[in-house]
Structures are given as C-alpha cells and as structure tokens.
Computed example of a mutant assay.
Amino acid sequence: MNITMTLNGKKISADIDADMLLIDFVRDHGCYSVKRGCETSNCGLCTVFLDEKPVLSCSVLAARADGRTVTTLEGLQEEAKEFGAFIADQGAEQCGFCNPGFIMNALALFRENEYPEEEEIREYLAGNLCRCSGYEGQLRGIQAFLAWKKEKSGKESEKS
C-alpha cells in the first residue's frame, strides 16, 4: 500500500506493508531518535507527534499516518535544544537512551500547559521509562527550565 505523510516538514511517499508500524517507518526514513524499547506501549521511548499530539509509534500502524503530519525529535531541534540543556545540566542523561522520548513528552506537556505544577509534571511523564536516573534529575531539569523561562519572559516584558 502507498502512503504519503509529512515527516518533519518534508512530504514523503512510500510503499509499505499493511502491518508496518510507524516506529519502523520513521526509523527507515532516518529518524533514529525514535527508539524501540518495550514494544508494549509502556516506556515512552518511541514517542512522536502525530498531528501535534504525542503518540507511541510502536502502537500505531504507519498506514494510520497517511495524509497526516508526523514530527520526531529531529524535527524539533531548536525547541528541544533549549530544554535539553537543562536536563543535561542536572545529570539526568546518564546513558541518554530515554532522552528523546522524554524530551518529546516534556515538549508536549509544555504545549498543553506552559507552566505545569510538580504533580502535573510527574503525572504527565509517568509513562517514560528511565533505568538510570530515577527521574529526579529530569524533574529538577524541568523545574529549572520552567524557572528560567518565567524569568526570561519577565525580562522580555520589562523591555516592552
């Protein structure tokens, strides 16, 4: 079957098997930030945005993305770079395997709620598996990022 989608801003058409998963499709097209972890929709490593909403690409058939927009971390480099530095600063990227999925979910959270409370952060990111750090570094990184963002927006509004 032939499908067409917009992947990270680029229109792509491909002939696929009907049972191909979205994770395999995006990886076949060079999006290696999308990782295979549990293959049971429990770890968050394969998170992508499908029409701007986070989905687990190990649980979505590629055919379901036909005519839609798929965004991976490769398509969000500027947005992710700013936030990712705060995660790294807290030592939360020990092995780095979970980072792409974690960052994708954090960006989705920030799009939904610009300044979430700690409980909201914990709840939203509960589906991300990290075997190294115990999540406290990620939480500190998010909190530091949010504090920086608030300070930055305050300084920008003072200039106006």
Rank of each mutant, 00 (worst) to 15 (best):
I3W: 12
I3V: 14
G9W: 02
G9I: 11
D15V: 14
I16A: 13
I16F: 13
A18T: 13
D19V: 11
M20N: 13
L22R: 12
F25I: 01
V26D: 04
V26A: 03
R27G: 02
D28K: 07
D28P: 00
H29Q: 03
H29E: 01
R36P: 00
R36K: 12
G37R: 07
G37L: 08
C43T: 01
L45C: 09
V48D: 05
L50Q: 07
D51R: 00
D51P: 02
D51A: 03
K53G: 05
V55E: 04
C58W: 12
C58G: 03
C58F: 09
D66K: 06
G67K: 08
T69V: 15
V70R: 06
T72E: 12
L73C: 11
E74C: 07
G75P: 10
E78K: 13
E78I: 04
E79V: 15
Q90E: 15
Q90N: 14
E93R: 15
P100D: 06
G101R: 05
M104C: 14
M104P: 05
A106L: 12
L109W: 08
L109Y: 02
F110K: 10
R111W: 06
E114A: 10
Y115S: 08
P116H: 05
E120H: 12
Y124R: 14
L125D: 09
L125M: 14
N128A: 08
C132A: 08
G137Q: 06
L139Y: 01
L139V: 10
I142R: 06
L146D: 04
W148V: 00
E151C: 04
S153L: 13
